[in-house]
Design a binder for these strands. Structure first.
Length: 663
DNA sequence: AATGTGCCTATTTTT
DNA sequence: TAGGCACATT
């Protein structure tokens, strides 16, 4: 085993006598423990990599772990190792055992806008916002493994009652579409393993040792899946930190940490308390802040690092000013200390906050990378393309059918679809299938029938060719034959169309490359598309300031961190204040602070637009809860104009020139 | 009946 | 800011 590991880390790695829970504080080397434990299992204990699975919560974390294990084992010895998210593991299980789940192996995976759409359709009244609320309730039930019949009984309020009413029909619709939602990817394997001993045992044989990262963020269904996979032998190591639990809204329950002790009385609990990441001031502020939360496990993080820079708190006039100020500080700081842009991170509560920072970074010619956020796949043009792919894979996917046949416009509109839908409903077949049944001719006029069947044949042709031709070529063909670019140009103004076309090109090239790399055809690629993030591709090496939500930043570290928008109403978020979930917000702040290695700057805005009017904000209470290690804004930290900023930068340059420092 | 136009509002966090 | 929806247009 490699040197440089401390005693508890070594203990956690070598412990194999039963289930093991590692309580790992922020920056205490938990990823190291997981990667080294995998290496230990393979190299010292004779495990085959194919029998080990490491489960993470994000694709990004999975990718990073895969790389680190690969580096540790070297020479392709990590081949066959499973490193993926719970959901990706779920896809693998459901796909392989599809027949036991009542699905074809080519089922579609729907994202939240698809599922909201279905809820809206099922509920009848098309209020989108309300549908989202209902969908959210249904998802909570699924996360807690409560079936529709049960939900009807326990629905406590009007919203829950309304959700319970559509829940059953929602599930039936998914099955009719040969589709699953994200929750199904956990729930279906759970049901499968609970009901089929033979299947469960097969998977238990296959995955003989499990390592679970970010265990504090598992929900009930995920925990149950873990238990079913691990079985009585409990051959697993779970790594977690109750202070970093930030997914309660997704059904994660820190209670699962306690549950583990109850369900596995022999559970070995090991604490990692030495922080290797942050300077003492940063760690101290984080500890002081989190001490305001009630503790589940007692844990004292300490560090051998020196005090480091004071934490700075800066108030900005408004969000524009805040973004400008951060951009200028990064520029000046980089110049002064000769750092890399990739040493800096800007972390925020909500995705929408990124925009202004992007704008200012561009203004200052500072390269940046936005990390996390499925938002790329949410873009209309990407969804358009994916709808074609989904339909090729799974002709039962009516949602994909509707989107694809109407985009770009090809003479099929609401009334054609309504007629086709009515017929399909009567025949209990998909829209696609209905289009080629003889009886459909009585419901559509000649022109409509022609349009629908031409489209169907086009898809069939693509599907046929997809199995033997490279994905890249098929995608090109898809774009050419649909005249997608021309349609983009005609449906929005040039600048917008250019941007969209750029995204499309980016997506197509990425998918084509991925197909070549993994030796997969378009159909196979499509099967996992809703689970991969574009950002997996190459952002790691890219030299740029990192932008991320606090949620997406978990597990990452940066030399210099800017925590922005730290105001009452943002962090803690207003909705959390309304519902009294202050502790989770505090943990979110804690996660943000503990990302920083050397310096931490916290900014907040005095005013912020809220819809039509402007709201006056005050600094977050969390800043006050961080104790004395922080330097409040000095006079010269006040917001400055761009000119002033340039002047300041010039000053620094002059200063450095005088000192003879390298440019 | 399909498509284009313009207004309006809603924004937590992710798989 | 961008996407969704109601209404006008072809």
């Amino acid at each position: 085993m490699s040197p440089g590991l401390n005693a508890p880390q070594r203990e956690a790695i070598r412990y194999l006598n039963g289930p093991c829970l590692v309580l790992a504080g922020a920056g205490s080397g938990k990823t190291r423990v997981i990667t080294h434990k995998i290496a230990y299992l393979v190299e010292d204990c004779g495990f085959s990599p194919a029998n080990i699975a490491a489960i993470t919560f994000t694709n990004k974390a999975a990718k990073e772990m895969q790389e680190r294990v690969g580096g540790l084992l070297g020479g392709g010895k990590a081949k066959g190792l499973t490193v993926c998210t719970f959901h990706a593991l779920g896809v693998r299980i459901v796909r392989q055992e599809a027949k036991h789940c009542g699905l074809k192996p080519q089922f579609s995976i729907l994202d939240s806008s698809d599922t909201t759409q279905i809820v809206a359709d099922v509920a009848g009244d098309a209020d989108k916002a309300f549908a989202r609320t209902l969908q959210w309730q249904i998802s909570s039930w699924k996360n807690a493994m409560i079936p529709p019949e049960e939900a009807v009984k326990i629905a406590a309020d009007d919203i829950a009652a309304a959700a319970a009413k559509v829940y059953g029909e929602y599930e039936r619709t998914l099955r009719a579409y040969q589709a699953v939602d994200f929750d199904d990817l956990i729930n279906l394997p759970v049901r499968l393993f609970a009901e089929h001993d033979e299947v469960r045992e097969r998977w238990q044989q296959r995955l003989r040792y499990l390592l679970i990262d970010e265990y504090q963020d598992t929900n009930r269904a995920q925990y149950t899946l873990l238990r079913l996979l691990a079985g009585d032998r409990g051959a697993f190591t779970a790594v977690g930190d109750d202070d970093q639990a930030i997914y309660a809204w997704r059904g994660a329950d820190v209670e699962n940490l306690r549950l583990l002790q109850t369900d596995y009385p022999k559970l070995q609990v090991i604490k990692l308390e030495q922080n290797y990441r942050s300077s003492a001031r940063i760690l101290g502020a984080a500890n002081t802040l989190i001490a305001n939360n009630e503790k589940l496990f007692e844990k004292k993080l300490w560090s051998e690092h020196g005090p480091g820079d004071p934490i700075r708190v800066v108030g900005a006039r408004d969000p524009e000013n805040e973004a400008q100020l951060v951009a200028m500080r990064i520029q000046a700081h980089k110049f002064e200390f000769g750092t890399q842009f990739s040493d800096y991170a800007i972390l925020y509560r909500g995705n929408h906050q990124a925009r202004l920072f992007e704008q200012q970074l561009r203004n200052h010619k500072i390269p940046y990378v936005i990390s996390g956020g499925q938002s790329f796949f949410d873009k209309a043009e990407i969804r358009d393309l994916i709808s074609y792919l989904r339909l090729m894979l799974n002709p039962d996917d009516d949602l994909a059918f509707i989107r694809a046949i109407t985009t770009p416009r090809r003479g099929v509109g609401p009334s054609t679809l309504e007629a086709l839908g009515a017929y399909a409903g009567k025949r209990h077949v998909s829209l696609f299938e209905a289009a080629f049944e003889e009886g459909v001719a009585q419901h559509l006029n000649a022109k409509q029938l022609e349009a629908v069947q031409t489209f169907g044949q086009f898809i069939n042709r693509l599907t046929f060719r997809a199995e033997r031709e490279p994905a890249g070529r098929l995608l090109e063909e898809l774009l050419t034959e649909t005249h997608y670019e021309a349609w983009l140009m005609s449906s929005c103004d040039t600048r917008e169309a250019d941007a969209k076309w750029f995204n499309v090109r980016d997506f197509v090239e990425w998918l084509g490359r991925k197909g070549e790399q993994d030796g997969k055809n378009l159909i196979e690629l499509t099967q996992t598309i809703n689970l991969i993030s574009m950002l997996d591709k190459d952002d790691a090496e890219f030299e740029g300031v990192q932008l991320a939500t606090l949620h997406a930043s978990k597990g990452l570290e940066f030399k210099h961190v800017f925590l922005v928008g730290v105001e009452e109403g943002m962090l803690p978020h207003q909705s959390a204040l309304d519902e009294g979930n202050l502790e989770e917000e505090r943990r979110l702040m804690y996660v943000g602070i503990t990302r920083a290695q050397r310096s931490l700057t916290i900014t907040w805005c005095e005013r912020r637009k809220a819809g039509a009017d402007v709201r006056v904000c005050e600094a977050s209470r969390f800043i006050g809860e961080m104790g004395e290690g922080i330097a409040m804004a000095r006079k010269d930290d006040a917001p400055v104009s761009q000119d002033e900023g340039k002047a300041r930068l010039a000053n620094i340059k002059a200063l450095l020139a005088a000192k003879g420092a390298p440019g």
